[in-house]
């Protein structure tokens, strides 16, 4: 064996402090992910044209796909309202997840003798053999840090509540949890629903963290056991899982927001919603037809 399995720990590592505030390796790469997204949009929209160039086309494609998904799930008005959250969460989680396959992740860092099993003296930049894993990595995928996934989940759930109060009003929003309209059983169901809200944070964050942390460990372990060739199928698997988890997180946020802005106990509400969706479909078709007539700038 010419290397050593990297030290695997759930907490992320502190790289340095700014004014006593610790900067973690996962935080650094979260900032990098945000910069990647901003850069992507900057390149795509810098010289935008009616007939898009390739980067613009890619961004437009992602943008319209997510926007259409929001329209289909939440209707025109709410769909547009939730869209910025859904797109931002999707892109941030996707980019964060895909860092896993980039070389240097968890293999470049600061030499550290504090890693268990490491000698006191570490010489040279390239570390081999027993001291190969004696580093504190500078870059680690954010999704493998619970802080990142919980923060996103809290944002998702809190935003859902804010939209609930905004769209339904305080009375109806609180009435979802505290109601005696359907008898004591209705109250129990309402309270159960209230208890589910914080559980959503857990389910969202642990799903993402669990999948990505496991994937990260998998790549490191397989990379250690079967370097180069053996790990390739898992790279594809991780790309796929990264995409699916980003989509699931964003889609669940959209679903929670849609459900959170739908009043309970109205039999006719669904019909209204269907009518609204039908009306919006019609409007969308008309809009698409009109777009054919838009003069070229």
């Amino acid at each position: 064996m010419f290397g050593k399995l990297p030290h695997i720990a759930v907490p992320s590592d502190v790289l340095f402090t700014i004014g006593g505030y610790p900067v973690y390796n996962t935080f650094l790469i979260t900032i990098l992910s945000a910069l990647v997204i901003i850069g992507m949009f900057y390149i795509a929209l810098r010289k935008s044209r009616i007939i898009p160039h390739r980067a613009q086309n890619l961004v437009e494609w992602i943008f319209t796909s997510i926007l259409n998904l929001c329209y289909e799930v939440a209707g025109k008005k709410n769909g547009r309202r939730f869209f910025p959250w859904v797109l931002t969460i999707f892109l941030l989680v996707l980019i964060s997840n895909w860092w896993e396959v980039i070389p240097g992740i968890e293999t470049i860092g600061t030499k550290s003798a504090e890693v268990p099993g490491c000698p006191e003296q570490l010489s040279g930049i390239l570390l081999w053999g027993n001291s190969a894993n004696c580093i504190v990595p500078w870059l680690r995928p954010p999704s493998t840090d619970l802080n990142f996934t919980i923060a996103l989940a809290v944002i998702s759930v809190v935003a859902t509540q804010i939209y609930g109060f905004k769209v339904l009003g305080a009375g109806k929003q609180l009435g979802r949890y505290f109601t005696l309209k359907d008898g004591p059983m209705g109250l129990v169901v309402g309270l159960l629903e209230l208890a589910l809200e914080p559980l959503r944070i857990l389910s969202l964050s642990f799903r993402l963290f669990g999948n990505l942390f496991a994937g990260d460990v998998l790549l490191l372990v397989i990379g250690f056991l079967l370097p180069v060739v053996g790990v390739i199928p898992f790279y594809f698997l991780e790309l796929f899982v990264g995409f699916i988890q980003a989509f699931v997180f964003a889609f669940l946020t959209l679903i929670f927001m849609t459900l959170g802005t739908t009043a309970h106990g109205h039999e006719d509400h669904e019909e209204e919603h269907m009518a609204e969706v039908a009306h919006e479909d019609h409007a969308r078709v008309e809009h698409a037809l009109k777009r054919e007539e838009v003069p070229v700038a």
Binding site: F2, I102, T107, I108, G109, K111, I135, G223, F224, Y235
Partner: peptide
């Protein structure tokens, strides 16, 4: 600076 050389090379080639 320290690089986990075997794993980094493996990552590089795999990438």
């Amino acid at each position: 600076l320290g690089i986990n050389a075997p794993l980094f090379i493996s990552q590089l080639i795999t990438f």
